[in-house]
Simulated assay, not measured.
Amino acid sequence: MSVPTPPAERPIAHVYDAAYTGVPNWDIGRPQRAFVQLLDAGLVRSPVLDVGCGTGELSLFLARHGHEVLGIDLSPMAIRQAKDKANWRRIAAHFLVWDALDISKLRAADLSFQTVVDSAMLHILGDRERDRFIDGLGDVLASGGLYCVLGDARRTEHEIYGITPEEIRDRFREVDGWKVVFFQQTIFERRWSSNTAYFVGVQRQ
C-alpha cells in the first residue's frame, strides 16, 4: 500500500495525544460488539478503511480475520500504539496519521475502499465537520461499498454530539447517491460505562 503525504495536523490532535498517554475510557481493548456482528454477518469486504481508529483494536480484529485494513487517526500517539500492537500480535494491518476530515485526499494515492468502519468518530464532529467528512467519504467509498458507523444516541434535539436516525437519513440521501441499508439501536461500551447508541450501515450507490 503506497503511503500518501498526510495533510496538516489539526490542533485537537494534541488533545487526543494527551488522552492516549493513559488509557481513555472509550478504549476497551477490543472491538465494539456491533462490529463483531457485522463481520459475522459477512458484510465486511476488503479493502477496509477504519476512520478514527484510535489504538487499532477494530482494525486489528478485521485484519486478523483476513481483511486488508488501513486505520487512520489524527493522533500520532494513538497510531504509534496501534503500530506497536500490530507488531506484537504479528497482524498485517496498516496505520497512518491522517485526519478523517481529509479522507478525500487519499484518492491522490489511488486508494478506495469497499468498507469504511467508524467506531464513535462521526458522533463527536461538529455540524460542518460532518458535512466535510461525508463529502470526503463519497470520494473514497467505492460504488456498492458500505459505511458502518456506531455512535452515541443524541440526548436532546439541541445537542450536536451524538447521532439520530433523522440526522442520518437527512445527511445520507438517496438523491445524493446513498442508501441506508440497516439501522439498529444498540450500546456503545466504555471501560467504566456504556451509552445507548445507534449502529448504521449506509451504502454508496
Results as ranks from 00 to 15, higher is better:
residue 114 Q to R: 13
residue 114 Q to W: 04
residue 115 T to D: 06
residue 115 T to E: 01
residue 116 V to P: 14
residue 116 V to K: 15
residue 117 V to W: 02
residue 118 D to Y: 15
residue 119 S to C: 07
residue 121 M to W: 08
residue 122 L to E: 06
residue 123 H to Y: 03
residue 123 H to M: 00
residue 124 I to A: 10
residue 125 L to Y: 00
residue 127 D to L: 05
residue 127 D to P: 00
residue 127 D to V: 15
residue 128 R to W: 09
residue 129 E to G: 03
residue 129 E to V: 04
residue 131 D to R: 05
residue 132 R to I: 00
residue 132 R to K: 11
residue 134 I to V: 15
residue 134 I to Y: 11
residue 136 G to K: 02
residue 136 G to A: 02
residue 137 L to D: 11
residue 139 D to R: 14
residue 141 L to A: 13
residue 144 G to A: 10
residue 146 L to D: 06
residue 146 L to T: 04
residue 147 Y to F: 11
residue 148 C to D: 09
residue 149 V to I: 13
residue 152 D to C: 05
residue 152 D to G: 15
residue 153 A to W: 12
residue 153 A to G: 09
residue 153 A to R: 10
residue 156 T to K: 05
residue 158 H to G: 12
residue 158 H to W: 08
residue 158 H to D: 05
residue 158 H to P: 00
residue 159 E to K: 02
residue 160 I to L: 09
residue 160 I to Y: 01
residue 163 I to M: 09
residue 164 T to G: 10
residue 164 T to F: 03
residue 164 T to I: 11
residue 165 P to M: 02
residue 166 E to Q: 11
residue 167 E to H: 05
residue 168 I to Y: 01
residue 169 R to T: 07
residue 170 D to F: 00
residue 170 D to N: 02
residue 170 D to W: 02
residue 172 F to W: 09
residue 173 R to L: 02
residue 174 E to A: 14
residue 175 V to L: 09
residue 176 D to E: 14
residue 178 W to G: 03
residue 178 W to L: 07
residue 179 K to D: 08
residue 179 K to G: 13
residue 179 K to N: 15
residue 180 V to A: 12
residue 180 V to G: 06
residue 181 V to R: 12
residue 182 F to I: 10
residue 182 F to Y: 14
residue 185 Q to D: 14
residue 185 Q to Y: 03
residue 185 Q to T: 10
residue 186 T to L: 11
residue 186 T to W: 10
residue 187 I to D: 11
residue 188 F to M: 06
residue 192 W to A: 14
residue 193 S to G: 10
residue 193 S to F: 11
residue 196 T to I: 12
residue 196 T to K: 03
residue 196 T to D: 09
residue 197 A to M: 01
residue 197 A to Y: 01
residue 197 A to E: 00
residue 197 A to L: 04
residue 199 F to M: 04
residue 200 V to D: 03
residue 200 V to N: 06
residue 200 V to K: 05
